[in-house]
Design a protein around this nucleic acid. Structure first.
Length: 256
DNA sequence: AAATTACACAACCGCCTCTTA
DNA sequence: TTAAGAGGCGGTTGTGTAATT
């Protein structure tokens, strides 16, 4: 037996909201609030709409202080950073951007930002063969980090793949096995850093590491190992970038 | 000028979680 | 403890409009 629907779809209006409906909903909520019950609200407000539809319309469009229009570079940066960290948790990402709704951010990501990033990736790939002179950014030094007190892993410097960019990041990479028994993994990571003139450079490195536990019994990295690796390379990347920031006061870092 | 295509954004759908009785 | 209902969320679809052919 399936769940009962929240409303009778045959009796409710669907599709775009009219200005009159918007006004009714807004007036009602201004006067009485939502009453903590969206399902009952449309009837009280005199609307032939599903309660969920009213809730969505209010949250995404009618409620006060909603910000519409272009996203700023700073908002782009926050979205990219959080998407990298937590994935498509749009409501959490929206909570960090006052005035923006999860739906808005989701749409923005799917229609614009993702393509923007893909463009960067493609651009980066093409510059590899163009032999563009490296920008004066520091390459990653060989860095040794200790993981979980059990295994020493190494972050080795990757090739410096750079060219001035005035837009935002980036790319990432799933770790993959690089030894026959799966005990070693490799993943690529990177991001953009900018100098004081707002020139962006694409910095990329490769992680080679040993799994935290003996991998004799499996041929691919375990999920939690992958997550740990991601965390390590991410932390290391930021640490390197932060060193650079310290040397050049007005630099910025974006990572993904 | 009309038809087609691409794009942006609003809205819906269905599943999951939380609350409550 | 469990089942039902409501809210919340992310993925997907629908619709209007701008751009292109």
């Amino acid at each position: 037996m399936g769940r009962a629907p929240c409303c009778d779809k045959a009796k409710v209006k669907r599709g775009p909201w009219s200005p009159e409906e918007d006004a009714k909903l807004k007036d009602f909520i201004d006067k009485y609030g939502t009453g903590g019950n969206w399902i009952a609200l449309p009837q009280k407000a005199g609307l032939k709409r599903c309660g969920k539809s009213c809730r969505l319309r209010w949250l995404n469009y009618l409620r006060p202080n909603i910000k519409h229009g272009e996203f700023s570079d700073e908002e782009d940066r926050i979205i990219c950073s959080l998407f990298h960290s937590i994935g498509s948790r749009w409501s959490i990402i929206a909570a960090q951007l006052p005035g923006r709704t999860d739906n808005d951010i989701k749409n923005y990501w799917n229609t614009k930002l993702k393509k923007k990033l893909m463009g960067i990736v493609n651009l980066s790939s093409s510059t590899t063969s163009l032999n563009i002179s490296p920008l004066p950014f520091p390459s990653f030094s060989q860095t040794t980090i200790q993981s979980a007190g059990t295994t020493t892993t190494t972050i080795s410097s990757g090739e410096s793949l750079v060219g001035p960019m005035h837009t935002i990041p980036i790319f990432g990479g799933e770790p993959s096995s690089s030894s026959s028994d799966g005990s070693m993994v490799e993943c690529h990571f990177g991001g953009l850093i900018s100098d004081s003139n707002n020139n962006w450079a694409h910095q990329r490195s490769t992680f080679h590491g040993q799994l935290w536990e003996s991998a004799a019994d499996h041929t691919t990295p375990l999920e939690y190992e992958i997550e740990e690796i991601k965390q390590l390379v991410s932390t290391n990347f930021i640490a390197n970038c932060n060193n650079y920031i310290d040397e050049s006061s007005s630099s910025r870092v974006m990572y993904y």
